[in-house]
Write a protein that binds this DNA or RNA. Structure first.
Length: 492
DNA sequence: TGAAATGTTGGGGCG
DNA sequence: ACGCCCCAACATTTC
């Protein structure tokens, strides 16, 4: 008797069973062809090159959760669920097809160039072998090529982009989880264990803070979404900029790995708005953040070298400084600016940072310290659990003043004013910079202005228990503006 | 999804 | 009662 035909479900950044169009297509194909589904994940260089320490930690947890979910949804009890492979994806898929009756391969689309080039190549190779091969729209509400200006060009500014998206057909309702998956049960050559991926924190487990804050996996994502909708979305519009209140969804890492889809989030927020009169504003403010995610992917798709090349060409001439010591101080949360250090330490400890604080720490780095945004990007890539090829480069170019619809370079954040405005009592600072815990409210964001008496009472010795600021705010601001002028002169 | 510098206005103190 | 000054408070411009 010949083996049943196999449909491969190739998981990538879509580590979920619900609302997964490629998975549903694979199941449908298997049903119609009396076949079985083979779920695979391949750690190929295209993926592993994009992973930092924090995203590796997340990926391992998420793959384990997905494996268990697939096993629980298998048609018969089996510990053979998600099959793991390491190496070039085309080689892996061809090897599987060489040894097994694979007749179809399904996946959901990605939008970064290494992935799109790889996928186009793989699709043509598999189709040449006579396999059915389908890619699906799952991880964006609007494909980059679906959104065009009236004159047919790509958007460069967020607001008109998002307005244009609203005029497109409403995002479809999410699909529900399949009830049962007809799994292929046999051995597959080359299959390895998750420990072989070598994703765990080494040499010590530095991820305790991450574990405390997040639960990777589809269930964790769903819990996070509905806790947000039930408890925090009501205050989102008013309080979203307040790191001391934590009303944001913190869904970004879940979306990063596709543990939840933007369709699920979009519809949950809109159902909330429909059921709660007067809450349309806060809901649409939140949904607009999905819009920024869409916009970042849109920009990345059209500007494939977003990670390295400034979108505004004149910034190639910007006189960045190579200050390794200052960069190190920034990374470690030792700049002497309390709100900045709080953010950088939150990042180091939890793999996450509030969005408002990301803007403040980014501005300090690229403006007051004149350090290249690529250095900030590299650090965030390694430490953020939500670091992704679209949002992270997009956002660094935004704060660097050189991106799409970016904050102009001369728009320089003052970390004292930002702190006083968005963390008025200094609670966020006190949480992450405990050595300033006893500073009075008036000086919590500017300890260098406090009198020796006040510092002494708070147990603070500047330069010893807490650093002096790396640079004077006025001096740093003026230096940044001069550098900006120098750049513009260099172009002309 | 800035901040600082500069400009304008109007109330109040005061000679 | 008046002009003058000072300076918040707000608006506008500039980076």
């Amino acid at each position: 008797m010949t083996e049943r035909p196999i449909a491969v479900m190739w998981f990538r950044n879509d580590l979920r069973l619900a609302d997964n169009p490629a998975l549903l297509a694979a199941l449908k194909w298997a049903r119609e062809n009396d076949g079985a589904v083979l779920p695979v994940f391949i750690l190929d260089p295209v993926i592993s090159d994009q992973l930092g320490g924090a995203t590796k930690w997340w990926l391992e947890k998420s793959l384990s959760a997905l494996n268990k979910d697939i096993a629980d949804h298998g048609d018969t009890k089996s510990d053979r669920a998600l099959r793991l492979f390491k190496g070039d994806a085309k080689t892996v898929l061809e090897a599987v097809a060489d040894h097994k009756p694979v007749q179809a391969v399904f996946w959901n689309r990605l939008y970064d160039q290494p992935s799109t080039e790889r996928d186009i190549d793989i699709k043509s190779v598999l189709q040449d072998r006579g396999l059915t091969c389908e890619s699906h729209k799952a991880n964006l509400l609007f494909e980059p090529w679906e959104v065009k200006t009236g004159s047919g060009t790509d958007f460069k500014v967020y607001s008109p982009f998002w307005r244009a998206c609203q005029k497109l057909p409403t995002p479809r309702e999410p699909y529900s989880k399949p009830k049962s998956i007809a799994l292929f049960k046999g051995d597959i050559e080359g299959q390895i264990n998750i420990t072989d991926f070598d994703l765990s924190p080494k040499p010590v487990n530095w991820a305790e803070g991450l574990e405390e804050r997040f639960t990777p996996g589809e269930q964790g994502a769903k819990d996070q979404l509905f806790e947000f909708i039930d408890d925090r979305l009501t205050d989102y519009a008013d309080m979203r900029d307040r790191p001391d209140h934590r009303v944001t969804s913190e869904l970004s890492p879940h979306l990063r790995f596709g543990e939840i889809s933007p369709y699920q989030v979009w519809h949950a927020a809109n159902h909330y708005a429909d059921a709660n009169p007067g809450k349309g504003k806060t809901a649409s403010k939140f949904v607009a953040e999905l819009g920024w995610r869409e916009f970042a992917h849109h920009i990345l798709f059209h500007a494939t070298d977003l990670r390295t090349v400034p979108l505004q060409g004149q910034f190639k001439n910007f006189p960045w400084s190579e200050d390794a010591k200052a960069l190190r101080a920034w990374q470690k949360g030792q700049t002497g600016f309390p709100i900045v250090d709080a953010g950088m330490r939150e990042l180091w400890h939890t793999g996450y940072m509030h969005n408002r604080v990301r803007m403040i720490v980014g501005s300090i780095l690229v403006k007051h310290l004149l350090i290249h945004w690529r250095d900030g990007l590299a650090w965030f890539d390694d430490t953020l659990v939500d670091a992704c090829p679209a949002n992270n480069p997009f956002s660094w170019q935004w704060i660097g003043g050189c991106g799409a619809d970016a904050a102009p370079y001369f728009r320089i954040f003052n970390p004292v004013l930002q702190g006083e405005k968005f963390d008025p009592k200094g609670e966020y600072v006190r949480q992450w910079v405990p050595e300033l815990r006893d500073m009075p409210e008036q000086y919590i964001h500017k300890p260098w202005e406090a009198s020796p008496l006040i510092l002494k009472a708070a147990g603070v010795t500047l330069g010893t228990t807490y650093p002096e600021p790396l640079i004077g705010l006025k001096e740093g601001r003026e230096r940044a503006l001069e550098a900006y002028q120098d750049m513009k002169k260099a172009v002309g």
